[in-house]
Structures are given as C-alpha cells and as structure tokens.
Amino acid sequence: MSSIPASSFLLLAIILFCIGLYGALTKRNTVVVLISIELMLNAANINLVTFSKYGLTPNLTGHIFSLFVMAVAAAEAAVALAILIALYRNKPTILIDEMDDLKH
C-alpha cells in the first residue's frame, strides 16, 4: 500500500482545511460555522493519522491524538449547540453576527 505518496494525503487535508476556513469566515449561520470548524478539525486529524504511518518515526501516537481531538470536538459541538438553543430562546436569531448582546 506504499504506492500513495504522503503528500497526496496532506494535499487533501489542505483542501478540506481551506474549505472549512472559507465556510467559517463567510457563513453567518451558527450551525454552518460549527460544521466548518469540525471540518477543519477533521483536516488536522488526517495529518495526524498520515504522519503516524509515514514519517521518520512512525508510531501510534498520531492515532491516539486524533482520538483525543474527536472527543474534544464532540464536547465542543454539544456545548456550542446548547448555547445556541439557550440564546435562541432569548433572541430568535441563528445568525452568528447578530449574537452581539455583550457588545452593547
């Protein structure tokens, strides 16, 4: 299975990261921004798993680290959506740039 060069995995990770970054910066819907952030985390995970197979000292640490990233991402998504629902109850908007009550 060594026929795929490491750089192609990394390139795919870059593309996905850029898509996620673009989405996070241009979308106004909170849920979509969250999804985009998850996509960026996923792209980082691809790198971690790739370097645990390729590289100078390949070992399983990359797998472990990506599992931790997933756990943290799940916690983050749960809390973020809870905040979104709590906010929505007070101010019926889901647009992220209208949630600026603390500014005024």
Partner: peptide
C-alpha cells in the same frame, strides 16, 4: 507539503 516524500512503514 509537495516536497514531503516520506516512505510508508
């Protein structure tokens, strides 16, 4: 990234 050419082990 392009010049990265590690070998899979």
């Amino acid at each position: 990234v392009a010049p990265v050419d590690f070998v899979a082990e």
